[in-house]
Design a binder for these strands. Structure first.
Length: 137
DNA sequence: GCCAACGTTGGC
DNA sequence: GCCAACGTTGGC
């Protein structure tokens, strides 16, 4: 059971789009490092959905519901995608700013390598972020 | 919209 | 195999 974070520009494919679809392929990844993380994913892993560019917030939690398979949108079969399912919308989206300000989260790949669109999240990072995102206030 | 950071490509 | 040029991502 592993944790991940996956980014999308909300103008292109946002959290609401995934909620409306229920299950969707996470396709379009064209970066080797990100591709390798996709291949490491297993059914039952969970991932944050992050809005890049015009959002800069983690907005919800997804389940990985199908392991990596060739990305049908790619011209080359070396690229893969997984299927994801929206399972929980954060009560309070967790901002990049808040993550950067907390020393316990300042080592997150999100902060350290802002260009990587699929990245691992540690169990500690996951639990802390969930505690912020799901709290009632 | 700008540009820094990063990845990829291709000439040598 | 190096590295300059180019393209893309994503925070600001």
């Amino acid at each position: 059971m592993a944790y991940w974070l996956m980014k999308s520009e909300p103008d292109v494919f946002g959290w609401d789009d995934l909620v409306a679809k229920g299950v969707s392929p996470w396709d379009g990844v064209r970066n080797y490092q990100a591709r390798n993380f996709l291949r490491d994913m297993a059914v039952g892993d969970q991932a944050f959905f992050y809005h890049s560019r015009t959002g800069l917030v983690i907005v919800g939690i997804m389940d990985i519901v199908a392991p990596a398979y060739p990305d049908p949108t790619a011209p080359d079969p070396k690229w893969v995608c997984v299927d994801v399912k929206a399972v929980r919308t954060f009560d309070h989206p967790v901002t990049l700013e808040a993550i950067k300000q907390d020393p316990r989260l300042s080592d997150m790949v999100l902060v350290k390598n802002s260009r990587l669109s699929v990245q691992p999240v540690t169990a500690n990072e996951w639990q802390l972020t969930c505690a912020w995102g799901l709290k009632k206030a």
